[in-house]
Design a protein around this nucleic acid. Sequence first.
RNA 1: GGGGGCGUGGUGUAGCGGUUAACAUGCCGGCCUGUCAAGCCGGAGAUCGCGGGUUCAAAUCCCGUCGCUCCCGCCA
Length: 597
Amino acid sequence: MKTHTCGELREKDAGTSVQLAGWVNRRRDQGGLIFIDLRDRWGITQAVVDLEAAPEAHAIADSVRNEYVLRIHGTVRIRPEGTANPDLATGDIDIVADQIEILNRSHTPPFYINKDEGALDEALRMRHRYLDLRRETMQQNILLRHRVVKFIRDFLDAEDFIEIETPILFKTTPEGARDFLVPSRLQPGMFYALPQSPQQLKQLLMVGGFERYFQIARCFRDEDLRGDRQPEFTQLDLEMSFVQREDVMRLMEQLATEIVRQVTPQKRLIAQPFPRIRYRDALEQYGTDRPDIRFDLRAVDISEIAGRSAFPVFAANVQAGKKVKCMRVPGLAGTLSGTQLRKVARDLETMARRAGAKGLAYITIPTDPAGELKGPIGKFFSVELKLELLAAMGAQGGDLLLFMSDEAQIVYAVTDALRNHFKAELDLDDDLLAFCWIYDFPEFIWDAEHQRWDPSQHMFTMPLPEDLHLLDSDPGRARGSQYDLVCNGYEVGGGSIRIHDRAIQEKIFPLIGQSMQQAIAEFGHMLEAFEYGAPPHGGMAWGIDRLVMLLAGAPNIREVIAFPKTQGGTDIMAHAPSTAEPEQLRDLHIQLDMPAE
RNA sequence: GGGGGCGUGGUGUAGCGGUUAACAUGCCGGCCUGUCAAGCCGGAGAUCGCGGGUUCAAAUCCCGUCGCUCCCGCCA
């Protein structure tokens, strides 16, 4: 139907007889002359319809409206002097139309397709997602996603990886997120679970001898949604045999770097090689294991200095073995009046209390070098101690110092909350991609509620070789081989070296509260596989949606997913989920037992 | 499960106790042979998400509810 796209014709094509097809982006009626901007995926080309030269085409053009689907036949012509449009790639030419066919009509769209600025009610967009997808930003986002995935496939293919599909109908795993269940008709009363990730299967592919596997894998987790979390999402899932942690990280860092350089060259990488931050340091300094390191607000341990102050809270906490941390906010105090400052301090304290703290002390550094340190706890620090504090914090005139002291978990939460608060005010550059690695995670995290250890990543993560002995003596101190790739505060990916030895795997189960019987029932196939020459192996999984979101500069992952779910987990276009027919339920031997109102 | 935000012609917003519910854009009609966010003239289009309450009077205040969204819990 079309000889050319709407984005490719240029001056050199003048005189060519062409046929274009696409959507009416806009129509401008001059009376005897009608201009139609015809749009397709590749661009926009202007067609001109002249009443005298082509009366039939003109009559049709007269009836055309936005989003009508047209086939236009005509001749490429260089636009008359002074009428070129420099804003349009095809703006030097237009098509003198001699024949127009309406392939389909369109209602007036419920929102603008042809201009992209301004917020739109997301429910409305979702209800007509097929129209929303026609908008330029959505076209670009989905195209970018394709390019990223294509790049990954090509890159890994060149590295001798092969793509293997693993089943969507699989088995429930008791750990981690809630499963989506699918009832089995052939096995009444039994359920498949949709995979939360192909973790077990990819390890079994290593036992299967493929050595280098990847998959663009759909994963499912039945948990509440967020701007960066959908119940079904796409992972780059990857596994390699005969590798150590460093081998995987090196290759993955190269992949990330090349994606940015070649697919989104307008983005800048903040550092290379990517900074590596120990899990413990990330928590201590940033309060989170996925820090946004585009800005440098950190919590600094000043327990030693604070412990010598006269402030009873600090002294007592340090005595009790708790830390006192300080965050320096450069210049904030210098720009505020006393009243404003007290209000800011109050708001920050409210924030800290929400994060679990009992309070949030502060001190301001005067811009005048002879001035006094101000703030509720200033008086508890002697002159000498103040100087030590300023030196330790690298404080300058006008800075605001915030103090946190409590249980470690609370201090982390406050640090994270404060950082997120200031981040919002900093107007950070989205074109800057601050990748970093987080590593040396603990193998386990204590679950106080169930009185057991939980795997920090998952139960197949190999402890660091030098910490293996701790599994027996002090599991809480054992570090795992896990590594996470973080970018601008988002966890983009995570991986580890896996256990390939049955004896080690069997040590994990009792620690995480599983009996051997349970373990064999659920994971007997894994344990058995390890006994048939399982190679050492490790890998990684990337959240493709999050990666593309960051590369697109999109505010959430729904913007890079063609048909995402709403926060309630629904599709308001097709009305999913929906009720099942009684006959379907009967086939599955399912009876509904809905709560009474 | 909990906390916050939003909901006003098709769309985006203003109005925040008494307005003829305003503006822009879109839509419909007319004029116009070089426009490109076209222009000019005219017109239609809103019981202000829904339900209840307070009040002489509610888009506006209160309660509930529904929808979308952000965050905590949950989730790596």
